[in-house]
Nucleic acid binder design. Structure first.
Lengths: 117, 117
DNA sequence: TATTGTTATACTCTATAACTATA
DNA sequence: TATAGTTATAGAGTATAACAATA
């Protein structure tokens, strides 16, 4: 399923981790690179090339918070991209849910949510 | 969840892929390295160091099938290890299932099964 | 003293090409 | 001609240590 999702994201020129980071930024304006790393279990050091790639694509920008921290946010292009990505994700999720027989369907999300909360 | 599973396997000195390969061998006696690769989406070339590691640990052995193929099987030590591993996996699965509220529980496995079949 | 961002680097994992030998 | 096993190697991803600057 994750491999299939990666293929759905490829036309958007995003890797799975890129989309995940961008969603996190979209939902947490001015979040820092270190905070993203803690949230997603990515080493601080490895955030550098990851964010550079997304920044070079013009999708995110940095805003100084204080002398040592910088907040991340989506550019206009980044916000437009995320609208498309969210639509892709919603479509993918809908397709998956549709595979589940009706009598089980309403139980799936609550069960998964309970599994790892 | 996968990260937690990796930690459960660590005391057995097995990585996730090692345990997966050994389970496949246990359930498919004399399966070939190439067949395992096809089943698990692992390149033939990458099976070489993977199997060498498990073989060096004395857990699997090779039996010539014909001039070019060799069947893989668990050694006595490998079978003993898999008994422990299966117990660990069963315990892990039971712990996960126990997290799911009763009214959803019986629906989880059928729903997951339908999701990607 | 702890944290942020960064650089450098070693290590692991994976993909690819090529080769030999056999079915 | 296709397949099995193997070798060598490039590339991507990750972990680790260290550093300067700032909270």
């Amino acid at each position: 399923m994750m491999a299939a999702l990666v293929k759905r994201l490829a036309p958007h020129d995003l890797r799975l981790v890129d989309a995940t980071v961008m969603l996190l930024i979209a939902d947490n304006p001015l979040i820092t690179a270190s905070a993203i790393g803690r949230e997603l279990d990515i080493q601080r050091a490895n955030m550098v090339p990851l964010l550079k790639r997304i920044e070079d694509a013009g999708l995110i920008e940095r805003t100084p918070i204080d002398g040592k921290s910088q907040g991340l946010s989506l550019t206009a292009a980044g916000k437009a991209k995320m609208l498309e990505v969210r639509a892709t994700l919603d479509r993918f999720e809908a397709e998956l849910i549709a595979r589940v027989p009706e009598q089980h369907r309403e139980h799936l999300i609550p069960a998964l949510d309970a599994l790892w909360r």
